[in-house]
Design a protein around this nucleic acid. Structure first.
Length: 830
RNA sequence: GCGGGCGUGGCGGAACUGGCAGACGCGGCGGGUUUAGGUCCCGUUGGGCCGUGAGGCUCUUGGAGGUUCGAGUCCUCCCGCCCGCACCA
């Protein structure tokens, strides 16, 4: 048999798959959905076409590849589509760097990635391919925006927003990490701007509660989303400021500590602050403080020691009428709650630090239920069981009851009500950038904000000479495009010039795949409901609170609008680990990417396909190591040789019972369990390596051909080309359509098994014994062993543990620290 | 600080429900093929001690305890690393 030539066979099979449309899955006839067989939807997150694929991508897509092949060969119709997240800053910045028009650069990148993907031989249904920058796609993104707008779920308002001075655009809260732009790392600035928002906060509870509908999501991702949504239960409480005749609401999660509120704090940005001090001796000092605080960045505010300034005013604590001093301090944030707090220095670390610094009263009002002497002026952390002290008529109550009682008491006087607050903010979706879907809105002097009628969609992205970011949308420069007549009154109007955040595009693409060619609607509900929710979604954990939260929100809204019949987009989520190199995440900006191209060119796609999975557990990060790659290349050569040596052997039926046929069946069982149940994709490769090694060591085994066929069949999801070629050389056709092999239990059961014999838990011998041997006989055999004898000589056996088919353990008097028990033979509990 | 994860040979990792620790691969060592190097093939490979030898004993999964006949696996405490969240009232 000739040498293994990956280039030749890979080209050959890729052509066959293309010609035969091997991985295209047509949609069923809408009237015959029930008669359709089993189907499944496997999806990996779509790439940004901001460059070419690197090995990190290859690893990601190999996950879906193996799952898709595995399920297809289990008889499922598998939809596994692919697309390109083509709009947005990633692609646009790549275009700016390369110096071309974003469309040209993006489309060039898409073409290059598609070639790479086809060269990897991935079983993708290319008939459903989509790209979010195409009018055929973003037309429906705009259409969906309008549905949201009609329901009041997309709205425009002026608000303090995060501005990235480098990317020259506003950002969503989710895109700000530690005060820095998620994309470019520049420190973000606060600005007051009129922007478009999605009302995701209306869905905060649904996003939390409906996590129960998810079949399998990593706990880590759910936790991140829970933290991000940040639901807190407590109460809004009114503090009256008599001096200026104002009632101010604050939010607290601990209304039971109201008796410990010894001062009151406003955020510097709070609108009431200037009025509070107007004309007083404190005015200059307070306004100066407010000015300085405004100049500080979020990061500076956090890192410095807490400071603030007294206003000279007092607020009334509603529970006891006490007049407490009002301060202004920038550790209180305008963005959360009401921008004002009651300070309870005895039980809040931040308030405590502040009180210590300025000599304010610290009054303990809760204590652990099991007593403990209260220390004057100390910070007392909250505990599981605590009760109120120094709290008037509420003293002695356990904290939870005290909380309710105090709120109820205040509510009767209209001074408080139960309240729930979220950390989650509405999703800021408008961007002052060129490369995105235009927001389909016009601004009319007469009618205000007017949506573009559906039949005028898409609103095409205009051509402009200069698409570089300027701080206002480059679309504004396309004067002809901007000036339109109002769809409502026909008068003069101007188009909205902001574009949509690219996360809008990717919040519904997974439904479009189900009906990708539909020109009349974004997708037919029948097809969407047929394929979705996605059975297995695969992607990086970096999208835990951006894409994955937005997509869930979109689906809930679409469900409420009657567009789809499901509430969650992704039933099962798998987050794969990152591929590192030189200790850093592989990324273009760090310059440490490894392109699959040179490896594919030299060793073939199959070697790369296997190696990215063999490197370690897919859910864990992995460090790229060139050295290990050689091992996979050698294995493929061994596989080629092992199968070649037996390709002309007769195919025996039934397969003889030999060591090799047994090994083959054990391998089937392991690989099937690893892929199907455990989602362990590295160990199946090791198992097939073992099988191949044994074939090479036992050339005369009459089941060698069967073992070789098995190895080929099991490695097919990984090394699809070599497997297909060898399958053909074995005299068969189209392995990708063949049923997955089944392990025959008769071959799994060994005639003899190895039993470990221990004395006091230490291994003294290993015995080959007949399977299913009675316990008594097994013990007798074990006891008869010479090596065991030497350890049992002259000592009394107090106990004998038997695990059938596995182990015998003799326990002797004084042999272990455990207490000896009477019966000579103790049946094992496991 | 809170939440999640991880810690196993020289390296990547295996051991899924407590039952042979180190599968598989890399690297190393020895040998074969080769004019030579590389490739390729075969063998071997956790540490220590004893034995001329076959072999035997013993230690070992970040550390210390515990449960158990038996612990990498379960429990408690500690150490280290990674990730996420964090003046959220």
């Amino acid at each position: 048999m000739e040498q293994y030539d990956p280039q030749a066979i890979e080209e050959k099979w890729q052509r066959v798959w293309k010609d035969e449309r091997a991985f295209e899955v047509p949609n069923p006839d809408p009237d015959e959905l029930e008669r359709h067989g089993q189907k499944t939807y496997v999806l990996e997150m779509l790439p940004y076409p901001s460059g070419e694929l690197h090995m990190g991508h290859v690893r990601n897509y190999m996950l879906g590849e193996v799952v898709a092949h595995f399920r297809r060969r289990h008889g499922y119709a598998v939809m596994r589509p692919m697309g390109f997240d083509a709009f947005g800053l990633n692609a646009e910045n790549a275009a700016i760097q390369e110096g071309g028009h974003p469309r040209d650069v993006t489309e060039r990148n898409i073409a290059a990635i598609r070639i790479q993907m086809e060269r990897m031989g991935w079983a993708i249904d290319w008939s459903r391919v989509l790209s979010s920058h195409e009018p055929e796609y973003y037309r429906w993104t705009q259409w969906l925006f309008l549905r949201f707008f009609e329901k009041g779920l997309a709205y425009r308002k002026e608000a303090p927003v995060k501005w990235c001075p480098n990317d020259q655009t506003v950002l969503a809260n989710e895109q700000v990490i530690d005060g820095h732009c998620e994309r470019c790392g520049a420190e973000v600035e606060a600005r007051n701007l009129e922007q478009w928002f999605f009302r995701i906060t209306d869905y905060a509870d649904a996003l939390l509660d409906e996590m129960e509908l998810l079949e399998a999501w990593p706990e880590r991702v759910l936790t991140m989303q829970r933290n991000w949504i940040g639901r807190s239960e407590g109460a809004d409480v009114v503090f009256r400021i008599e001096d200026v005749g104002e009632d101010v609401e604050i939010f607290t999660t601990r209304p039971d500590t109201l008796f410990g509120a010894t001062f009151f704090v406003f955020a510097p940005e709070h609108a009431l602050v200037p009025r509070l001090v107007a004309g007083t001796e404190h005015e200059a000092e307070v306004l100066e403080y407010v000015r300085r605080a405004g100049a500080r960045t979020t990061v500076e505010r956090e890192e410095k020691e807490k400071d603030g300034v007294f206003t000279g005013r007092h607020a009334t604590n509603p529970v006891n009428g006490e007049q407490i001093p009002i301060w202004v301090a920038d550790y209180v944030l305008m963005e959360y709650g009401t921008g004002a707090i009651m300070a309870v220095p005895a039980h809040d670390e931040r308030d405590h630090a502040f009180a210590e610094r300025y000599g304010l009263e610290i009054r303990q009002v809760v204590e652990p239920a099991d007593g403990g002497a209260p220390t004057e002026g100390a910070f007392v952390a909250h505990t599981e069981n605590e009760r109120l002290v120094n709290s008037g008529e509420f003293t002695g109550n356990p904290a939870p009851e005290g909380k309710q009682a105090i709120v109820a008491w205040l509510a009767e006087r209209e001074l408080a009500r139960p309240a729930i607050r979220y950390r989650l903010r509405d999703w800021l979706l408008s961007r002052q950038r060129y490369w995105g879907a235009p927001i389909p809105i016009v601004h009319c002097e007469q009618c205000g904000i007017v949506p573009i009628p559906d039949d005028e969609l898409p609103v095409l992205l205009p051509e402009v000479d200069d698409y570089l970011p300027k701080g206002r949308s480059p679309l504004a420069a396309a004067e002809d495009w901007v000036c339109v007549s109002c769809p409502s009154c026909g008068g003069e109007a101007r188009r909205e010039t902001d574009t949509m955040d690219t996360f809008v595009d990717s919040s519904w693409y997974f439904i479009r795949y189900a009906d990708a060619k539909n020109d009349d609607e974004p997708f037919s509900r029948a097809m969407a409901d047929y394929w979705l929710p996605v059975n297995q979604y695969i992607g990086g954990v970096e999208h835990a609170i951006l894409h994955l939260l937005y997509a869930r929100f979109f689906v809930k809204v679409m469900n409420d609008l009657g567009l789809v019949g499901f509430r969650e987009p992704f039933a099962r989520l798998f987050t794969q680990g990152m591929l590192y190199r030189d200790g850093a995440k592989m990324s273009k900006s760090k310059g440490n990417v490894i392109s699959p191209d040179e490896y594919v060119e030299r060793y073939g796609a199959d070697a790369a396909r296997l190696y990215v999975l063999f490197i370690g557990p897919v859910e864990q990060d992995a460090e790229w190591q060139d050295a290990g790659f050689e091992g996979i290349v050698r294995f493929l050569h061994r596989l080629w040789r092992a199968v070649g040596e037996h390709a002309r052997d007769p195919s025996l039926d039934p397969v003889p019972d030999t060591p090799l046929s047994r090994k083959a069946h054990r391998t089937i069982a392991k690989v099937t369990d690893d892929i199907g149940r455990r989602f362990a994709l590295n160990t199946p490769i090791a198992a097939v390596m073992e099988l191949v090694n044994e074939i090479l060591k036992a050339p005369g085994d009459p089941a060698a051909r069967f073992a070789a066929e098995t190895a080929v069949s099991l490695i097919q999801p990984y090394g699809s080309h070599i497997a297909e070629e060898l399958w053909e050389r074995l005299g068969y056709e189209r392995l990708w359509t063949q049923p997955w092999p089944e392990a025959d239990p008769a071959f799994l059961e060994q005639e003899t098994t190895q039993v470990v014999v221990q004395v006091n838990g230490r291994i003294r011998d290993r015995l080959q014994v007949a399977s299913g041997l009675a316990e008594e006989e097994l013990v007798a055999l074990a006891r008869a062993s010479e090596r065991v004898q030497s350890h049992l000589d002259g000592v009394e056996t107090t106990r004998t543990i038997v695990v059938p088919g596995k182990l015998v353990n003799f326990v002797t008097r004084g042999g272990t620290h455990g207490s000896p028990t009477d019966p000579l033979l103790t049946p094992s509990t496991n």
